[in-house]
Amino acid sequence: MSETVITREEIKEFIKSLQGSYEVFAPVREGGYHRFKQLTGDEAADLDFSNTRLSPKSLLFPQSERMFEFTLDETNEDSHILKETPKEYPPAVVFGIRPCDAKALRLVNVNFDNPEFTDPWWAKRLDSMTFIGLGCNDPCSTCFCTSVGCGPFHEEGLDILLFDLGERYLAKALTDKGEQLLGQGGFQEDADVDTRKRAGELKKEAEHKISSHVPTDKLKDKDLLNLFDAPFWDEVAFACINCGTCTFLCPTCWCFDIQDEVSKNQGDRIRNWDSCMFPLFTLHASGHNPRSEKVQRARQRFMHKLKYYVDKYGNGVACVGCGRCVNYCPVNIDIREVFKLMNEW
């Protein structure tokens, strides 16, 4: 796989040139924060960011998405037949995604594309996308990626990883898809030994800068019911207001709800993000709610990420350490503290 040196100017041109044949999504700053957006015209990516406020999961798994549609018009021969909403999957480039968010997509993939089930929309979008990651030179104090099997220059889920060396980037192709895309740039300069060495150092320095560490080693061996019944949940959940901030900002929360909406004869089946924080998430048709109390709902989120997922998939926790929930929880419930409580219990 190639390792190429690209100047800042060249990469700008390259991204712009890709807009002809790809949909290009990149972080831009709008309002007070960064978000992934499709670049159009002269709009440029803004890479002066720590991370986007919302994770890029919505590029593959939109918050609201029409899945099927139907008509109730009896004069129509397709009346009452559910039809898949036609969708397009043009080749797309996701530029400037952080390694934690790229790993998160692989993690969510176990839910949407596995031997039992494949979610066609997720899978086709994932397939149509090429991911150009940007390593984190300066991780935040709330980043704990290195504790959860990830890192500021983690490569999983990426096709190309960029090392920001100041005036230049080292672009490391990680997959054939990445190699092929880089090839389109016609970049001439292969990274020499010194540059590669510098990139390696950058990675080490960044990992060293990570100041948050969470313990995960004992989670797998914990007794599930014992953790479930642990007395600390009341304390963890007291401040929780059961809003969906943590789940909606989280790059690995994948839960959704399916709703049918009908207006006159036109019907739509729509999939929306849902949140285990909401009472309606588990409300049965009978009226019974197995998670009627907020402590049960808050516990669910942590148990799912740090225990049920661990036990079911055997590939670590369902958290990539991006720190979004830590930063934006309105009442400062900090998952790092919950890691400690659960691991040490």
């Binding site: 207001i241 059961n242 969906g244 901030t245 789940t247 909401f278 009472p279």
Partner: peptide, 25 residues
């Protein structure tokens, strides 16, 4: 940009209805 996370509603002391109208099924 609203994501309907309902943080505004839930942070509000006034919003104590057992079931909010948006959560009625």
């Amino acid at each position: 940009d609203c994501t309907r996370c309902y943080a505004c509603r839930n942070a509000c002391p006034l919003c104590y209805c057992p079931t909010c109208f948006v959560d009625e099924a």
